[in-house]
């Protein structure tokens, strides 16, 4: 494995763990959402690094699809957050439990 690929994978692991940490310790819904974006980006970085390692373009295609899924997820997630904000005007993620079964 080339050095750049190995460093990219390490960076991807670091970014993913920071995203996990952010989702765990932050309670602002938008910041948690951005941390999820960070994790998706870390996965994308790993895909692109492996595309270079294998010498095939499939990894880049997967990263492209992940990017489109992230865009869809952001649209829906922000719509949910906006709906909650309209409803309550103040959002703490621990207080939003009205969908709990």
């Amino acid at each position: 494995m080339e050095r750049v690929v190995a460093y990219s994978l390490i960076l991807s692991g670091v970014l993913f763990s920071m995203g996990v940490l952010g989702v765990m310790i932050r309670r602002h819904p938008l910041v948690m959402f951005m941390c999820i974006e960070l994790m998706l980006n870390a996965a994308n970085l790993a895909f692109v690094a492996f595309a270079r390692h294998v010498g095939e373009v499939s990894g880049q295609i997967y990263a492209l699809i992940v990017m489109a899924v992230a865009a869809a997820e952001v649209a829906v997630g922000l719509a949910i957050i906006v709906a909650v904000y309209r409803h309550r005007m103040d959002v703490d993620i621990d207080d939003v439990s009205s969908l709990r079964g």
């Binding site: 390490i10 993913f16 763990s17 996990v20 989702v23 765990m24 310790i25 932050r26 309670r27 621990d94």
Partner: peptide, 27 residues
């Protein structure tokens, strides 16, 4: 202002543990 979580007392420890284990698996 709502910065950090207060819901679970062990949240910091659990988050750090999860992050360290993910990183450890990658390395």
């Amino acid at each position: 202002v709502h910065t950090m979580s207060y819901s679970l007392p062990l949240m910091y420890a659990l988050g750090a543990l999860l992050a360290v284990s993910v990183l450890g698996v990658v390395l």
